[in-house]
Design a protein around this nucleic acid. Sequence first.
DNA 1: CCTTGACCTTCCAGCGACTGGAACCCCTAT
DNA 2: ATAGGGGTTCCAGTCGCTGGAAGGTCAAGG
Lengths: 130, 130
Amino acid sequence: MNIGEVAERANLPAKTIRYYEDIGLVRPLRDANGYRAFRETDVHKLVFLGRARALGFSIEDCRTLLALWEDRDRASGDVRRLAKNHLAQIERKIDDLKDMRDTLKDLVRACAGDDRPDCPILSSLARGDQ
Amino acid sequence: MNIGEVAERANLPAKTIRYYEDIGLVRPLRDANGYRAFRETDVHKLVFLGRARALGFSIEDCRTLLALWEDRDRASGDVRRLAKNHLAQIERKIDDLKDMRDTLKDLVRACAGDDRPDCPILSSLARGDQ
DNA sequence: CCTTGACCTTCCAGCGACTGGAACCCCTAT
DNA sequence: ATAGGGGTTCCAGTCGCTGGAAGGTCAAGG
């Protein structure tokens, strides 16, 4: 299977797939003409990677998850620990963004937004209260 | 004022301040010995930048905000528009992260997390439901 | 047989916003 | 004279791709 078809099936850009080969996440075979020759297992891996990435796992986490997935003797505790850590990171990020959002909302609400120069947004950035 | 003191007062790493000079956000003078010589206005700008960055504005947005801040004839509408766009981006990000969080939470809950290999997290990534 | 066009290949550069490190200069105190 | 704590420049690396150039391969149509 050539990269184009794989890209479609895994719903990933061909460029991304080549990159994943570069960093050793997949190892497709090669045809005589130099084209990458993907097996079904490669496609499965790429789908797996696409979903893990969509859940925000880092590439290194994905590498670990892939290894666990392929290890029949894994302990589900290892997977769960990884996922929980990642979950905690996401929650932290959400909290940070919520703080920004709340501040921004207040500022936007306070600003007339007309053609006069007075602007609570700029004043707040300058004063640094918020 | 040397960069160390400015770094402390603006609560930014010296490296970051040098970078901001590199990309033209601040233009400190220079002493005879080559050291950067910051004026009060430079410090104010850096504080402003620090706060804008803390609210998640991109560097390019910060450049615009700084220009608006320095323009006595600005229209507050321009500032407000920028802030509103940014706010919308943040809300989109929060929503994306919430989706991830909810999925991850479900998966973590479903996983026993013991020393057995059965793992709904991996199965879900492989199957690619949700 | 030749061309066209869609595919594939490699390699290099760039994104954003820093951050680390090397190699060096400057200033003050002892 | 030296030690230490500033400062300087420049280059490379981070993360996860993405764009583009320059070229090889293949099937279909004239």
